[in-house]
């Protein structure tokens, strides 16, 4: 099986110029792959660099060495060296990302926040809204909130809007950063179901999950990030 994500010897160091140029090595020799329909969960203590690895795959953090191969429209794109335009294309057609926190735009209604990735993919506004509504309903966001901007929502509600936004499109790769962190048991179960559906659809996923029960339910394989820890040189 050709992997959807193939990371080899990726590394990341932060250089903090405002703190006398101190170097903070984050990860080194990161190597793993993810097949279609597989959910790989990154494990390791907090601070080990799990979120940094997700951000590097998404092209949000730059990669200082190695390669991050991603299958995109039939080709392999190396995110570590791709041009900004290529990364935008990868984000439009290939990689979805559910971050820990919703970064909402003022004034935009929850339903439109969720529908936006579909609109970007060329789906009509009516259909996008209908699918967004169905997903919000599944995640137990009451209909009376749909027209409100999520900045007014509780933390758990915001996270569910964020999850809906991440799961709505049909992208072949999904990155999940603590998708169940502030959810109650009922909504955690919905997320587990959504992940299972994505697997059946052949989506390759990389997730960070602290909840042991959820991890047990969604992980096909664990990758221990502690082994990638970059010792301070």
């Amino acid at each position: 099986m050709i992997p959807m994500i193939d990371i080899r010897n990726a590394e990341k160091t932060f250089v903090m110029h405002l703190q006398d140029g101190i170097r903070l090595p984050v990860v080194r020799n990161v190597s793993f792959h993810v097949a279609p329909g597989e959910c790989v969960v990154l494990s390791g203590p907090s601070g080990a660099g799990k979120s940094s690895i997700l951000k590097m795959i998404f092209g949000n953090y730059r990669c200082d060495g190695g390669t991050i191969g991603v299958r995109h429209n039939g080709d392999v794109v190396d995110i570590a060296t791709a041009e900004p335009r290529e990364i935008l294309g990868v984000r439009r057609d290939t990689i979805g990302y559910v971050s820990q926190f919703l970064r909402a735009v003022p004034r935009v209604a929850a339903i439109d926040v969720v529908a936006e990735p579909l609109l970007a993919a060329g789906v009509t506004r009516e259909e996008a809204r209908a699918r967004a509504g169905a997903l919000l309903k599944r995640l137990n966001i009451p209909e009376r909130l749909w027209k409100l901007p999520p900045s007014t929502f509780s933390g758990g509600e915001q996270q569910r809007v964020n999850i809906a936004r991440g799961f709505i499109s049909d992208l072949p790769i999904l990155l999940l950063d603590e998708p169940t962190a502030s959810l109650d048991a009922a909504n955690r179960a919905v997320v587990v179901e959504l992940v299972a559906e994505k697997k059946r659809a052949g989506v390759a996923m990389v997730a960070i999950v602290h909840d042991d029960e959820v991890r047990h339910l969604i992980a096909d394989r664990l990758v221990d990030v502690a082994s990638f820890a970059a010792a301070a040189a």
């Binding site: 935008l88 294309g89 984000r91 439009r92 970064r103 909402a104 735009v105 970007a120 060329g122």
Partner: peptide, 14 residues
């Protein structure tokens, strides 16, 4: 208004 995941990715490249 930090909007990493909500940047206007629609237009570029489409």
């Amino acid at each position: 208004v930090t909007a990493n995941s909500t940047a206007p990715g629609a237009g570029a490249g489409a």
